[in-house]
Structure formats: structure tokens, C-alpha cells
Amino acid sequence: MLVQGICPPKFEELKNIFQKYFDHNEETGANFSIVKNNEILVNIFGGLKSKNSSWDENTIVNTFSLSKGIYASCIAKLIEENEIDIEKKVSFYWPEFKINKEKILVKDILSHQSGLFRFKEKISNEDLLNFEKITCILEKQNPDHEPGEKTYYHAKTHGYLVENLIRRIAKKSLKEFFYENFSKKYDLNFNFGFEKNDFNNVSDLIENSPEFEKISQNFNAFNNPKHEMNFYNSKDWRLAGVSSMGGHGSALAVAKLYDLLANDLKFNNNKIISQNKFKEILKQSPSRLDESLMLPIKWTYSGYILRGGWMFGRNKESFGHNGWGGSLGFGDPVEGIGISYVTHKINSGMGADMRAVNLIKKAYEIFEK
């Protein structure tokens, strides 16, 4: 199974590493991309998107929480246009939200400090498809702690909270807003809800480890509802475009977006957000243990994660988001690049996936030559 795509001789070592993943059955379908100043340096892909179809340059896949970094970019655009102020109360934009939550600020939600990190009543995967039902649940729900007091990754609730802010402000769904302001404008093969043609290009997910979570009597950020791979491969899921964990795209699309953002920060290109405003919202929120992930995640007040380890490269200025299973994307304003890896072979866990990290490390070695 040969790797295909764009890979000049300078980056041949990346192609060799990627090929070995398929040779050793570590990977069965994936895409890795590097974009710099709108130039595609690398865009390699291989494997199968389904039992009978090969992965190609148009293949998209469910990226799970990588999606959160994509819609953080929508918030960045609204900040640039002075449509949203992260220091304001959520209820300023969403009046029904204030029931027992009057003190929660927009930045508390974006940085996972709002206390609404879980659903406290039992819900089903089918409920996740009903945006109005879920937002109504969150409107009425009491937070688990005072805003800003603790940090808990909002794995499934986050997208509904953020998208409803976008809907209240822009009068558009996330799907519509992202398409009009990003996908259409910059030719990004990424969506929050399928159109008919997308079904021809999508890759089915494969579970590498069938046991993701232990059943707990206490609902947490992850186990309500429980992950069901067949559901994530369903037509209904793909049509719904569940923002927290249902964005579908290619690595090239993600790398192109983070390249734009990285160079807005580096050169003040102002394609999405001005340099000064971006610097302000990339400030790290209070440094503490994320009690959902039990890791010291560096959350910003805009919804991005700051560099930790090698997951977002060598430079501490990098920002991005990864997703359950192995997909990730980030921008590095020092190098002025966007990088992404997407896969359909799901490894359990939210930590760094070595399939991506090995390629990222090698890429930085090549940059130094």
C-alpha cells in the first residue's frame, strides 16, 4: 500500500516514516500535511477510506475534538470584527443562559472553566443530534463549580455552548458561518455537517482499541453518552455536524487554516485576526491540572491549547487542538506554518499520538537543515 501525494525530496524522510506506518499496520488510512505561507510543502496520504476505496486527496474523516480548534477560529474572527467580547457574560449574548449561571463569562467557556463540563442528566447519542434539546439542557443546568475556580475539559458540552454564542451573534449555524467565512473563502475541505457530495469522500472510522472507557456511576465529561463507533460512522451523525466532536476534514484543510492563523500572528496579515488581538486571546488561562483529563493542559482564553511536549512542535508559541483517536492540527508562528495529521484508525485516549509526533519531530529536524 503505497503512500501518495506531495512530498519533495527534501521531505522524503517524512514519506518513509509514513509508509512504515502502513507496512507495520500501525495505520490503515491517514493524511499528513504541512503548509507554509499558503504553499503546500507536504500533503501525503495513504491506505483505505473504506473497505473498497482508497484514501485520496479529497478524503475527509471525523476529527473529533480537533474540531474545537477549528471553531475557535470562528470565535477569533468574531473577536476581530468586534462582534464578541470574551470578557462579557455569556448571558449578554444568550439571555436564557443566566439561570444560576449569571457570573459565567465567555472566556470561562472557551477556556473550559465554566463548570458545565458534563451533562448531569442521562442523554443518548441520538440526543446529541438535537441542538435545541441539548442547549435547553445546558441553559437549565447548574454548573459544578464557580467560574474560573477549576478547569475541566468540556469534551461534549463545549461545542453546543460555543456554537450557540455564534448563532446568537452571527444569526447563522456553525456550519453556515464556517462555510461562508472559511471553507469557501480559503478552499478548506472541512465541514460541520455534510452536503450530499461529502458522502463520496468520507472515510469510515476504525477502532484500534475497542475499550475506551470504564463504566462509571458518575457522569463525567466523556461517558455520557458513551462512545459508539458505529454511530460516528452513521449518516445522521455526519449530517448533524456536532461541533464538539463531529467536524470532518482533511489534514490539508486543517494545515491551511493554521497556516493562515500562524502568519496572522507572525506578520499581522490580518486574514482572520489582527496580531494584537490574537496575542491577547492566546494568553494562557490559570495554570492548573485539568480535572477531566488529569493533565496540565495549557488552555488559552480563546479555546486553543498551547504547546506541550512535541504534540504541537518545538516552539512554545505554537497553538492548536488535538482530538480523540490521533488527529491533531496546530499553527507555529515562529516557523510560519500549519501542520495536521488526521486518521481513521482510532487510538484510545486524548494524549499525544506517536504516529503524528514522530512525523512532527522529523519535520522540525528537516527545517533545521
Rank of each mutant, 00 (worst) to 15 (best):
E83G: 09
G326F: 14
V3E: 06
S209L: 14
N200M: 15
M294P: 04
A363D: 07
N38Y: 15
S209F: 12
L174H: 01
F319M: 04
K36F: 15
N315V: 04
L359H: 13
N191A: 12
F278G: 09
D187R: 11
N25F: 14
N43I: 07
Y93R: 00
I75V: 00
L282E: 15
G308K: 13
N197W: 05
E12V: 10
G309P: 00
F267N: 10
S114M: 01
N16Y: 09
Q19W: 12
S243K: 13
F267E: 09
V242M: 07
G325M: 06
H321R: 02
K120A: 04
L257I: 01
K20V: 03
I75L: 02
G313I: 02
Q284E: 10
A170S: 08
F319R: 01
K361Y: 05
Q19F: 10
I86A: 05
Y71E: 12
N322R: 14
H145C: 02
N191K: 11
G351I: 07
C136S: 14
M311G: 12
S292R: 00
L129I: 11
R307M: 04
F178P: 01
L41E: 06
I137R: 08
K15M: 14
N230E: 08
I84R: 05
G247I: 04
L295A: 14
F267M: 11
E149T: 06
Q4E: 13
G329Q: 02
L66N: 02
N100G: 10
E291K: 11
K140L: 12
D198P: 15
I79F: 08
I166S: 01
S54Y: 15
H145V: 02
C74H: 08
I360T: 07
F131N: 05
G338I: 02
Q141M: 06
K122L: 01
P286T: 12
F22I: 06
R168E: 01
S91G: 02
F194Q: 09
D108T: 04
G241P: 00
S50R: 10
S183G: 01
I60V: 05
I137A: 08
F312K: 05
G159E: 05
N201A: 15
W55K: 01
N82K: 08
D85F: 14
V202L: 03
G320N: 12
S203T: 12
S250P: 15
I337S: 15
F192L: 12
S67I: 02
R238I: 13
Q141C: 06
V42P: 09
N191I: 05
I169Q: 06
T28W: 08
G159N: 02
E132L: 08
K214H: 06
N142F: 15
S124D: 03
I215V: 15
S287F: 13
Y93H: 03
Q4N: 13
K133G: 01
W55H: 00
I339W: 02
S73H: 09
E368S: 12
L289F: 10
F199E: 04
A253K: 05
A352F: 07
G331V: 00
F177K: 00
G47L: 15
N197Q: 03
F190Y: 08
L252S: 11
F330R: 11
F178W: 01
N142H: 15
N347H: 10
G331N: 03
L48S: 13
G349E: 06
A221K: 00
K283H: 13
